[in-house]
Each structure stands twice: as C-alpha cells, then as structure tokens.
Design a protein around this nucleic acid. Structure first.
Length: 260
DNA sequence: AGCGATGTTCGCCG
DNA sequence: TCGGCGAACATCGC
C-alpha cells in the first residue's frame, strides 16, 4: 500500500476510524519497524490522542500534541481498524488500542515500513531531504526544480527529494499519459511538455485517490492494467515494452512515448 | 523452486 | 556534486 494515492487513502482511513480517540495500550509485536525506542514510542503515545494528520509524499504525520508519530509503509504497509482481539490481522507489527477497546493495527509484511516519533514535521522533512508533496507543489517550483537537474525523467519522478509521493507504478502512468519516454533527459523537455507533465502528475495521482489506490480498478485506457508481458498499448495497439532502470522494472509504449 | 514486488538507503564509479 | 547502478533490507505469493 505505498505510493501517494494509497498513502492518502490510508490517511483518510485513519482519520475516519481513529482520530481523537484516547490511546490506552501500545502493543509492539515486532520492534524492527521502529525507528524510535519502544519506551519513547509508548511514552509519546500513552494516554494521548491522534489529533490530526498530515500527509507529505508517502509519509503520514500523526499529530499527538506535542509530538508527531510518523508512519511510513514501504511496499507492503497497511492499516486496519478492528474490534475483537482475535481479529488481529496477520503481519500486525504495532497495535494501538484505544480506550473504547477498538484497535488500529499498523501492518508490514516485508518490514520496509517504519514508525518514528519527531518533534516537528519540518525537522523530519529536512532530515529526509523530502521535496514538496506532489499534490501541493506549484508549477513554478516544479519548473524551477527541473531546471537544476539533468537526470532522466523516470529517475527524477522517483526521486523524493525532487518531488515527494510518486513511485514506480504511478511514474510510468504519468509518463505514459504525457507521452514522454522514461529515458528522456529532464533538461531536454520543452516548456509545453513540462507543463503537461506537471498537470498529468496531479491528474493521475488524484485519479488514484478517487480509486482509493486500488490499481485493479483502473480502466483499460490507462497503462496500469497493461503492466505485464505481451500487453498492447490501449492507445495505439503497439506492444508495451518492459524496461529496467535503477533496479526497478517499468513499462512504456515505445510508439506513443518516443525519445525526444 | 525461483522470481518478483507500489520503497529507501548506501557505496561505488564516472 | 550529481546521477546512474546495483545491492541490501525481509518476506510471501504466484
């Protein structure tokens, strides 16, 4: 459950289920997901409440007053709200039990997600060198940031210091919609295409949020349903090509997304 | 049985 | 310094 649309969906889920409830018990099943000591985690959470949440890129900051709990989900993180003890979901790593006996479980299968406690959001964003959130970034900032970089566009979109929230699957979708070849150097994209790219970042991510991050519900005219071998481009019917870049696997249409 | 996976980080090298 | 690459992290489903 990890790119921006999924994380936004988790944020809304947390807001709907768990906000303002007093936390009674913090159960740590596996302390490997903690970037903070178990003692400090408990100290910060016990008897306080999840007051509000902010999402920045793929991170959720949960305001506890006065500190923040940070949730990151890696590739397989999730949240689940449930009542009965025996319904504790598989892969639950940390469980927040509220005074009303309901629980919010933080799950992680591959252990790539992390929980942390910080004093301010700014301090964390600075430490991680996170760029602006993809949905909040202005075109001016986007354009400015692109001018200072020579990286190929696929890597730039994945680079959280440049723009925060886009991952492997959505970056492919954004490039497909923008008709930009993933290997295009950023400084060779003209202003019109750059504007279109910027708009498509927002549109694709917002569409993902509407779909609650559920990739299997994407309509066929998107690239997402065709991310496998021997699929055809929904626009031109050409064969979709697989490519490997910086250890990630992507897909694109060589005919629609010509190198410029 | 082996491969691949929505992420991040780090060391190496050009 | 920047950017690309590959490995490492850890686990499970197909």
């Amino acid at each position: 459950m990890p790119e921006l649309p999924e994380v936004e969906t988790l944020k809304r889920y947390l807001d709907k289920t768990s906000l303002k409830q007093v936390i009674d018990i913090i159960k740590v099943n596996d302390n490997r997901v903690l970037n903070v000591s178990e003692r400090d985690l408990i100290k910060s959470l016990k008897d306080s409440r999840f007051e509000s949440t902010i999402r920045h890129g793929k991170y959720i900051f949960v305001y506890l007053n006065p500190r923040y709990l940070i949730m990151h989900f890696g590739m397989t993180g999730d949240l689940e709200y449930y009542h009965k003890k025996e319904d504790e979901p598989k892969f639950s790593k940390v469980i927040f039990q509220f005074k009303n006996d309901y629980n919010l479980a933080y799950l992680s299968r591959r252990m790539f997600g992390r929980l942390d406690i910080v004093e301010t959001t700014e301090e964390f964003i600075e430490k991680k060198k996170l760029g602006p959130d993809a949905l909040k970034m202005s075109f001016e900032d986007f354009e400015e940031a692109t001018k200072r970089r020579s990286a190929i566009i696929k890597n730039a979109l994945l680079n959280q210091s440049f723009i925060a929230g886009i991952g492997n699957i959505y970056s492919d979708e954004i490039l497909f919609k923008s008709r930009i070849n993933p290997y295009t150097k950023m400084d060779s994209i003209n202003e019109i295409k750059m504007k279109k790219l910027f708009e498509n970042i927002k549109e694709v991510l917002k569409f993902g949020i509407e779909k609650e991050g559920n990739l299997s519900t994407f309509p066929r005219e998107f690239l997402i349903p065709h991310r496998k071998k021997e699929e055809r481009c929904p626009i031109c019917d050409n064969e979709i090509k697989r490519y490997d870049i910086s250890g990630r696997r992507g897909f694109f249409c060589p005919k629609c997304q010509k190198r410029s």
